[in-house]
């Protein structure tokens, strides 16, 4: 394998644009040619999760038209990866050709850390990052993709890093996509617990693989006036 596709996701494009470059940098350092998937913008999860299946189908078609099923597709998000890799199977594509294409694409889609550890078999990327870092595992990454070890393995390989533990770190931050604006009171109560535990951990930086969690936790930290930053895992792994 010498070439991969990179789909940076809509949230990263709009709110965390450095994620795309950082992810590309990491992949290129491993000797891979990186093709950016720019003719698609969103995997369709936001529509799918709200029950707007025809909109989700449209976006899925657009995404599939953009990619080459013969080549791995790297997504720096556990949530978007789950959508494509797992939930595209639940989308009722009308024609057999699209269904076949979805079946071909799904196993080619990898979340960044899983691709690095499981496919490329690397853990140390020569990254260097100074600071106390708390890792926040995103729910889809852990429970849909079953990636519990990979991000930690990669973070442990970063020079200068000091990893700190957040109590109950596997508990959801309360983002949940549109849940966060439909049920702000519940989402906010969950976030508030998360912020308290992050503050108790002594972390200077919170790292996650999902821009949704970064928006939620970052927004909570900013609102609380905490001097703690949020960073995407790719940024840490690309830092030197």
């Amino acid at each position: 394998m010498n070439e991969v596709q990179l789909f940076s996701t809509c949230l990263a494009e709009e709110f965390f644009p450095e994620v795309e470059r950082a992810s590309a940098t990491i992949l290129q350092r491993l000797g891979l040619k990186v093709r950016l998937l720019k003719s698609a913008f969103c995997c369709g999860q936001v529509a799918f999760n709200e029950g707007f299946r025809s909109e989700a189908l449209d976006l899925a078609r657009r995404f599939m038209a953009a990619c080459d099923p013969a080549m791995p597709i790297i997504v720096p998000s556990g949530s978007c990866t789950s959508m494509i890799r797992i939930f595209y199977a639940d989308l009722p594509f009308e024609d057999a050709e699209l269904t076949a294409k979805a079946a071909a694409i799904r196993p080619q889609v990898y979340e960044l850390s899983q691709f690095l550890v499981r496919v490329m078999k690397v853990k140390r990327l020569g990254a260097r990052f100074e600071g106390a870092v708390a890792y926040h595992p995103s729910c889809h990454l852990m429970r849909e993709l079953n990636a519990r070890e990979e991000p930690m393995a990669l973070l442990s390989g970063v020079e200068g890093i000091r990893l700190v533990e957040v109590r109950d770190r596997e508990e959801c931050c309360g983002f949940g996509g549109l849940f966060s604006v439909k049920f702000p009171h519940i989402s906010g109560a969950m976030l508030s617990d998360k912020i308290d535990r992050i503050r108790q951990s002594g972390a200077q930086v919170v790292v996650s693989n999902d821009c949704g969690c970064l928006m939620q936790i970052g927004g909570g930290l900013s609102r609380a006036g905490a001097d703690i930053k949020v960073r995407h895992l790719a940024e840490i792994l690309a830092a030197r």
Partner: peptide
């Protein structure tokens, strides 16, 4: 508006990434 009831909203900055080596 419901988002900012309970936390801040990230300023969108498409096409304006942080400098590559700034993370550390």
């Amino acid at each position: 508006a419901n988002w900012t009831k309970v936390r801040d909203f990230p300023a969108p900055r498409p096409g304006h990434p942080r400098p590559a080596n700034s993370a550390g």
